[in-house]
């Protein structure tokens, strides 16, 4: 920090004049960079490499939607659309119900990757009827892995309450791991934009897609629950658990969203778990007195008819069907009239 005196040149001062070549080189550099920068910034939007965004809309983030394929398989000749199992323990009921719609080997081929969607919406003990029966799930996974030689079974849901806790308290995680499957929990990366043509509310919506990677077959495992707003939460409403985003808005048109769900996903088949039917105070339940011990397990390939049958026989609410079933029928997801399409295997 030598003190500088006025008018006296610093002893270390050295003159370094620029020669012509140097000047030209620098001028070319400035011109080149400046020109390129001006092109990128100012060229019309449709020119190649132009970065211009005249309206400010181009820079809007884009979520490219994907479409979900149908997971349905062709109906086996001679089998019913709805299978009912009422005899034996829950596991036998499950097997009978599936056998009535064609048997599980008909639906799942060796080497398939199967995703099972139980309802794990709340951190409740399974006996309270708010979540799927873990015993059925465990056995279903065994059937898939052993009988059908499926390659992999995944279990996924996006619950309302904390996902790890819900899977833990509802014993679904334990059942999955004992059975040989793997639980996929939703985290911030799990959701992608799903395009469902024809849907009224969720034409483009966040969908819990990560576990669906390379999946061949999808099975719903839904409990039957009372629901104040849409009257009943059954097989179709179960798919609500695959939505992400601000899904609590959908209660403003609950029948619209539930019927949209029926076209959003076309499962291979759906199992309705009537072992613990939540008759009132749904869909959370919370008291054993709300639960009716059911004797029935249903399986079906027609989601509309299956829900209608469950509404009538498991919730025991007669034929005053919730409106979403009619809407789903109108959207072509199935036929509501289940009569003559039900088969029960006994003995």
């Amino acid at each position: 920090m030598a003190k500088k005196s006025k008018g006296i040149q610093h002893p270390g001062y050295e003159k370094a004049p620029m020669d012509r070549r140097d000047f030209l080189r620098r001028a070319a550099l400035v011109g080149g960079i400046g020109g390129a920068a001006s092109y990128l910034a100012m060229a019309p939007e449709n020119w190649p490499l132009s970065m211009r965004d005249k309206t400010g809309l181009l820079s809007k983030p884009v979520h490219l939607p994907f479409q979900l394929r149908s997971f349905q398989v062709e109906k086996k000749a001679g089998s019913a659309d709805i299978g009912v199992g009422t005899e034996g323990n829950p596991i036998e009921k499950l097997r009978r119900a599936i056998d009535a719609i064609g048997g599980i080997e008909h639906f799942i081929k060796p080497g398939d990757i199967v995703l099972v969607k139980p309802n794990v919406a709340f951190d409740r003990s399974p006996l309270l009827g708010a979540t799927s029966n873990p015993e059925l799930l465990e056995h279903l996974i065994r059937m898939l892995l052993v009988d059908c030689r499926a390659q992999e079974v995944r279990v996924a849901d996006n619950p309302i309450e904390s996902p790890p806790d819900c899977f833990e308290k509802s014993k679904i995680r334990l059942a999955t791991e004992v059975g040989g499957g793997r639980v996929y929990l939703p985290d911030s990366n799990s959701f992608e934009m799903l395009n469902t043509p024809g849907a009224k509310l969720i034409e483009n919506w966040w969908f819990f897609n990560r576990p669906f990677t390379n999946v061949d077959k999808v099975i719903g495992l839904a409990p039957v629950k009372d629901h104040n707003l849409c009257h009943a939460s059954m097989g179709m409403k179960n798919w609500y658990g695959l939505l992400g985003g601000r899904r609590n808005q959908f209660h403003q048109d609950i029948h619209g969203i539930v019927s949209d769900l029926s076209i959003m996903i076309k499962p291979t088949f759906t199992i309705i778990d009537g072992t613990n039917v939540l008759m009132e105070n749904g869909p959370t339940g919370g008291d054993p007195s709300n639960v009716r011990k059911g004797e029935t397990v249903l399986a079906g390939t027609d989601p509309v008819a299956l829900d209608a049958y469950a509404f009538e026989h498991l919730l025991q609410r007669g034929r005053d069907y919730p409106e979403y079933l009619f809407q789903a029928e109108a959207k072509g997801s199935g036929k509501l009239d289940w009569e003559g399409r039900v088969k029960e295997i006994r003995g």
Partner: peptide, 8 residues
């Protein structure tokens, strides 16, 4: 839960 069940 059953013993503490409350009547609605």
């Amino acid at each position: 839960m059953e013993s503490g069940s409350v009547e609605d």
